[in-house]
Amino acid sequence: MKEEQSKEKVKKFGMVIDLDKCTGCGACMVACMAENNVPFKEDESKKLDSITWLRIYKLTNGKPFPDADICYLPRPCQHCGGKGEHGHSPCVSVCPATATDYSKETGIVSQIYTRCFGCRYCMAACPYHARYFNWWDPVWPDGMEKYLSPNVSVRMRGIVEKCSFCFHRYQLAKDKAYFEGRREIEENEYQTACTQACPAGAIAFGDLNNPKHAVYELKKSSNAFRLLERLQTNPKVYYISGREWVRRAGDNYLKDEKK
């Protein structure tokens, strides 16, 4: 008993996103921007220099009218564990300055803005395009910087940023628990901003290792899949869809390959 208490369980935070519930409404994207002091520019229609930690992709089945179908797929950082769960995520292992790191305690891939010197090797390494470079100085119109949150530092030009699984929320929850004399935090005490906002309840977030958390069972669904599993990036974001074409769009297959 005593032993069990003192040994802090290794956590593996992750997400399960139900694509059949996701409406593509974009609330998660904006929740993330608002939570994490993400900057914006006058023209954000060039999606290749537009910082969106959480990006929603619009998938199409490629069929003509009236058999066409679309599906939205929200893509945060996948917090890849890498082969064999050693924390060799594609991005972490390549960063020369250890500015991005894999936490063995939470499974969260961090990004240290003040350490990053902007070589962009991690961006080359990430097949999900989850990493964003600050090509410009972040500028808020006069007065608007009032809404910036002190919980997340504002990033400077010339460095890379990405979804953090709202790590500051984990820290705040841990602090709170600590002050209340608790060791563990409850599932609802640490939820990401996108999960919290989603009006469709499409996103579930929690400890993939913890049977008491919703994601534990959800990820086992026969309709669950991860993006580019064949690359062995070992993501911690799972998707669920009842539609075969959507599940198949999650990975690359040779022409005649059966899934």
């Binding site: 292992s93 020369p96 500015a99 350490r115 010197f117 902007g118 070589c119 962009r120 090797y121």
Partner: peptide, 17 residues
């Protein structure tokens, strides 16, 4: 992106990279 921090590559070296 941050030339003035270029030396971090030596100071905070990641042997895996």
């Amino acid at each position: 992106g941050q030339p003035l921090r270029g030396w971090f590559i030596f100071w905070h070296a990641n042997v895996h990279s």
